[in-house]
Design a protein around this nucleic acid. Structure first.
Length: 703
DNA sequence: CGGTTGCTTACG
DNA sequence: GTAAGCAACCGT
């Protein structure tokens, strides 16, 4: 028989990604892959999408018919279904979770159940009789009845069984309507803007195009011209950005130069607003500015995808299922739709640049920056005083303040001091749940764990040696902020980090000095900026990740590409590090060559694929045992693979669970997620609490 | 015995 | 997720 595979909205059935439903004759012309339907599940009704239509031979279960086909909810195209299937297979994500990730929220079923007494006489208990009599006059809605007569489902059930009453269902489709149209840009230009770009860029778009243009605004102007070219052919355009802030900034730019409103799509929209965009893209030609989730919108006639800051690490979605790499998925979607795609960057990822140069499956367009800020490297080894800021930075800060120019200081450490240490025995206070150091917060006078939120008062005595004097070592934004406030008492100083709520963005424009973590990145395009101080570049460079030099370099180039000040000071203990040197003379080539030779010697991407298996368990011995078995199993299947671990994964003890990782370097591309999942499931002991997370094709990895 | 509560099972 | 099925209990 012919049956449809239906993926249900928001109803997780263990081990099953979809259920089978038959197609009633009256729907044969309506039913199609990708259409939204209502189906029965037990006594309830559920929303779902038809994922596939297949032939099944004498099923071992009852197959119920689809109840209705919904024309109001946008259908999901076959290419989108293929994309989801691919993400699910390639990255080893559950199909149910991946499909539900792209399903619209903001539309749901509302089921009302009405009960009515029948005209019959049967034996009834007192309670049953009371309910029966209430239902004689007219039908009553289930919840109302239960509340008024204070009865439970059991009474209704026994009455139904006896045939004394009957039930009736009313199913309504509830599509949420947004109150505020924040997803639509208010301003719009009177007509199209016009910028001069090289004609050849449009020709290069025959293939996926890597747009290596260092100046951010120049890149934006090129985007505008490319978009105009495609839009005027009647097609929709999707822009993808790594963060909401960067998307809004581009939106402010773009809306001046297009004669219509553009759509925003990101996680800060309400369900109703997101649904409204979801629906619009399916019915109208539109331009959408989105975070990575926009790649799954059901565009009616998509003509172009532009991914900005393609190197940005926020594109790597590995926190929860579905795990995927945004850039890879964007390329896949473009390929499935048969449309052009542009990856833009001020400093492309090693992966993309390598592909463009060696495999030529990406075209490359390159335009270097003309007006660069001066980059000064301060060698911290030569600083004699152990002061918080060096002499040069202090002098330059004063100079800029005098000239009414803003100074930004970037420091990626929260709190007052990252470690509290006993002066007598050297003990460092650790979080009892995560085995990571507790950060001291002076204002609140507490020690805090930044992984699990554990807090404690600073103790009077050291738990190891009973000593009573402690040093607050290291420096966080809070300490730096206090130092700056005390040093420049006349200046307006502002602290920006995830622990302080930024009340109003105008505060940033009014401030003279801004101290903050990477959250300040979006504001480094401020017109009044004169100086940026990278407090300690080593904090970025020394993160134990093979990709940290690349990430650091790219972050700095991204900043340089939008920066409007004269000078950037980089403070470091490693002035001779190749990243620092390459930044100083602005040489992408120097950085790339050095980085590629490092990666080659250690067998890291792009010379191999890196897969990671994360293991989590309350029992450390169990992890090591089963982890060891997994490693053995992989090795015995593929002798040529480089398998490392299980090794502790930082933080290796979090929320009372131990964490280990296995890393697999796969040079020839031999294995996939399904293989690893199979091995893990096979190696897992029947009653163990081991949880494993498989991450395929990583561009970064903490070691 | 009717009714409730709490738990496990399975859904197509 | 959540309705169904079942066992154990409670009160009349």
């Amino acid at each position: 028989m012919k049956a449809s595979k239906v993926v249900l909205f928001d109803t997780y059935i263990p081990e099953k990604d979809f259920l089978y439903y038959s197609i009633p004759d009256e729907f044969i012309s309506l039913v199609d892959i990708g259409k939204a339907v209502i189906v029965p599940l037990k006594k309830s009704k559920k929303l779902g999408y038809i994922w596939d239509i297949v032939e099944i031979e004498d099923p071992k279960f009852e197959v119920y018919p689809i109840l209705s086909v919904l024309e109001n909810i946008p259908p999901i195209s076959k290419s989108l279904i293929t994309l989801v299937n691919w993400i699910s297979n390639y990255y080893s994500n559950s199909l149910y979770k991946t499909a539900n990730y792209i399903f619209p929220s903001g539309v749901e079923l509302e089921i009302d159940r009405y009960l009515k007494a029948k005209d019959v006489a049967v034996d009834m208990s007192k309670k049953q009789e009371k309910v029966f009599l209430a239902l004689v006059e007219s039908e009553i809605e289930e919840k109302k009845l239960k509340k008024e007569l204070k009865i439970s489902e059991n009474i209704i059930k026994s009455l139904l069984k006896k045939g004394a009453i009957e039930e009736r269902f009313e199913i309504k489709l509830k599509e949420k309507k947004p109150r505020k149209h924040v997803y639509l840009s208010e301003k719009k230009g009177d007509s199209w803007g016009s910028f001069l770009i090289e004609r050849k860029i449009l020709d290069l778009m025959q293939k996926p195009l890597l747009l290596f243009v260092e100046a951010r605004e120049e890149r934006w102007k090129i985007y505008h011209e490319i978009m105009k070219h495609i839009y005027q052919k009647g097609k929709s355009v999707l822009f993808v950005f790594p963060t909401i802030k960067s998307l809004i900034q581009f939106g402010d730019f773009l809306s001046q130069y297009v004669p219509f409103s553009i759509y925003f799509y990101h996680s800060f929209l309400t369900e109703a607003q997101a649904y409204s965009v979801f629906k619009t893209t399916n019915t109208e030609q539109s331009v959408v500015l989105s975070t990575s989730k926009g790649l799954f919108l059901p565009f009616k006639d998509l003509g172009l995808i532009i991914v900005d800051q393609e190197e940005n690490e926020f594109y790597n979605m590995r926190e929860k299922e579905p795990r995927y790499d945004t850039v890879v998925v964007a390329l896949k979607r473009a390929q499935l739709e048969g449309i052009p795609i542009v990856l833009g960057s001020s400093s492309p990822s090693i992966a993309s640049f390598y592909r463009a140069i060696n495999y030529k499956d990406l075209e490359l367009y390159r335009k270097p920056l003309l007006n660069r800020p001066q980059i000064t490297v301060v060698d911290l080894r030569r600083e004699k005083t152990h002061d918080i800021l060096d002499f040069y930075s202090l002098r330059k800060t004063e100079e800029n303040l005098k000239n009414k120019k803003k100074v930004f200081i970037l420091l990626n450490r929260l709190g007052y001091s990252p470690y509290v240490q006993c002066q007598d025995c050297g003990y460092i206070f650790m979080c009892p749940h995560c085995k990571s150091s507790l950060v001291y917060h002076l204002e609140e006078r507490i020690m805090k764990c930044h992984y699990c939120g554990f807090e404690m008062l600073p103790p009077e005595r050291c738990p190891v040696c009973e000593g009573y004097s402690f040093i607050q070592s290291g420096i966080g934004t809070e300490k730096l902020y206090r130092y700056i406030v005390n040093t420049y008492r006349w200046a307006k100083v502002l602290r920006v980090d995830s622990e302080i709520e930024l009340q109003d963005e105008t505060l940033i424009h009014e401030a003279d000095i801004i101290v903050g973590t990477r959250l300040i990145e979006p504001w480094l395009d401020d017109n009044g900026i004169g100086l940026l101080i990278i407090y300690n570049l080593d904090n970025f460079l020394h993160i134990p990740d093979f990709a940290s030099p690349e990430k650091t370099f790219n972050m700095m180039k991204r900043i340089v590409g939008m920066y409007k000040g004269k000078e950037i000071i980089i403070r470091t203990y490693n002035p001779s590090h190749y990243v620092v040197k390459a930044l100083k003379i602005n040489s992408f080539g120097d950085f790339l060559n050095r980085e590629l030779s490092n990666r080659k010697s250690l067998n890291y991407p792009p010379f191999s694929k890196i897969h990671q298996i994360l293991l989590e368990d309350i029992d450390e011995r169990e992890i090591l045992e089963e982890g060891g078995r997994i490693v053995e199993e992989i090795r015995s299947n593929f002798v040529t693979l480089d398998v490392l671990g299980p090794a502790p994964y930082f933080p290796y003890f979090i929320r009372d669970k131990y964490r280990y990782q296995i890393i697999i370097k796969d040079k020839e591309g031999l294995i996939d997620g399904a293989f690893l999942r199979g091995i893990c499931e096979k190696s897992k002991a029947p009653f163990s609490n081991l949880r494993f997370i498989i991450n395929i094709d990583m561009e970064e990895i903490l070691t």
